[in-house]
């Protein structure tokens, strides 16, 4: 379980390191933008994947599903943090106030906060505080915040927004359906 999480995070970090090297050699405002888009979509994709783990693996080996879900969730949180770091260095550098005063950036920040809280409370040491389960439900809220984040983002496409939002809605309804059947 831990190993998988480690792998996913490592992959994310490697991608970022590669990107950083590329930025270093051909630095421009546009490269920062490119890098933040890539890292953002990695985080968004991992978030969707972690939400998909339960419904997709439904009826299968519960332990394995859990493991995947956790690994993907950890990956999402780590890459969201990396994405935040890149944004701070590029698109919102010199405009840090906007991170909180602009709804689009604030939504992204709050989504990251949720993912980080989940990350922190998912380790054995912190699991004793029994908030993991209600906190976990917030992943859907994080998803909604990501959609809000994409809505007015300068460099996101409408297609991306539509894809993400509809995937989120499908996953949420799938989950609710499974829950109702039970």
């Amino acid at each position: 379980m831990k190993r998988l999480a480690l792998w996913v995070s490592l992959l994310g970090l490697a991608a970022v390191a590669g990107g950083a090297a590329w930025v270093w050699t051909a630095w421009s405002a546009a490269s920062w933008v490119g890098l933040s888009r890539v890292s953002g979509w990695v985080a968004a994709g991992l978030l969707l994947a972690s939400l998909a783990a339960s419904p997709v693996g439904h009826g299968g080996d519960a332990k394995r599903v859990k493991r995947w879900r956790r690994a993907l969730g950890v990956g999402a949180a780590v890459s969201a943090l990396v994405h935040l770091g890149i944004a701070l260095g590029g698109p919102v550098r010199d405009a840090l106030d906007a991170l909180w005063t602009w709804p689009t950036y604030r939504a992204g920040l709050l989504a990251t906060l949720i993912l980080v809280l989940l990350l922190v409370t998912s380790f054995a040491a912190t699991k004793r505080i029994k908030v993991w389960k209600p906190l976990h439900r917030l992943t859907y809220v994080a998803g909604a915040l990501v959609a809000l984040h994409l809505l007015r983002l300068p460099f996101a496409s409408v297609v991306g927004l539509l894809f993400f939002t509809s995937a989120l809605i499908v996953l949420l309804s799938w989950r609710l359906l499974l829950r109702l059947r039970r």
Partner: peptide
Amino acid sequence: SVPQGSLFPESDTLASD
């Protein structure tokens, strides 16, 4: 839209956000 500070960091007539 983009925040002013991220586009024209040197301009000081407008707020950065």
